[in-house]
């Protein structure tokens, strides 16, 4: 297996190549405003670093959020287009699952919540049991409306210490962890998600308040 993985659902622009056993190369750069500019060059860089030609790839794994939409879509449309052009299957991974997977690999034990910044004073969150299985979420809520968890990780948790006391890293998702999660799930014969965004919110759409009169009342 030669898996190309990337994620644009958090402020990190990150890509990795995984051979089914280990991460061959990984890139991680935090720049929330430049996902669109950075992603493709980053993908080119990790393949070069891994010594893998794009035609040798066997699958793509992409973080499908939840995450701020504009950046999130960069990853999803890139995955869809690459999958189409290279004839590769595209697997979706919940970005919070990848963060949780990384946290456990870095030694976190017991049940915990992963949370990222959803802006507008809200967080995207999901909860996991001691085996790393998602037990609740993904959801988007104000931190104050959540039951404070024992342990928590992610930039969304670090941002609201009153709800998430003692929160730790990883802050954002890394494509290496995402690739490892995807490879593990696929090897276990489990299905991943379709390449479709987890928006969790309806689009903002103001219905114009009727036609405004221009003559003085």
């Amino acid at each position: 297996m030669l898996l190309l993985a990337f994620d644009t659902a958090t402020p990190a622009v990150t890509a990795a190549v995984h051979d089914g056993t280990a991460v061959l190369a990984e890139s991680y750069e935090v720049d929330a405003r430049r996902h669109g500019e950075l992603l493709l060059p980053t993908i080119g860089d990790v393949l070069r670093a891994a010594g893998v030609d794009k035609r040798e790839l066997t699958a793509i794994a992409v973080g499908v959020g939840p995450g701020p939409y504009t950046g999130l879509r960069v990853g999803l449309v890139t995955a869809a287009a690459l999958g189409h052009a290279l004839g590769l299957p595209v697997h979706g991974v919940c970005t919070l699952d990848a963060i949780a997977h990384q946290a456990r690999r870095e030694g976190l034990t017991g049940p915990f919540t992963a949370a990222t910044d959803a802006r507008r004073k809200e967080v995207y969150w999901a909860s996991y049991d001691e085996d790393g299985t998602r037990t609740d979420g993904p959801g988007v809520d104000r931190p104050g409306d959540l039951t404070p968890p024992q342990r928590s990780v992610g930039a969304g948790a670090l941002l609201y210490p009153e709800t998430f006391p003692g929160a730790t890293g990883p802050e954002h998702v890394s494509a290496g962890a995402l690739a490892d999660y995807a490879a593990t799930e696929l090897a276990a014969g489990r299905e991943l998600l379709p390449n479709a965004p987890l928006y969790l919110r309806r689009p903002d759409a103001q219905v114009p308040a009727g036609y405004k009169a221009v003559l003085p009342a």
Binding site: G36, R73, V77, T78, L82, H84, A85
Partner: peptide, 19 residues
């Protein structure tokens, strides 16, 4: 529209690069 443009630009890059 910035967000709309970005979808097309990202797709075009992926196709151009892959092909």
């Amino acid at each position: 529209l910035a967000g709309a443009l970005l979808v097309g630009v990202s797709a075009a890059k992926a196709y151009a690069w892959a092909l």
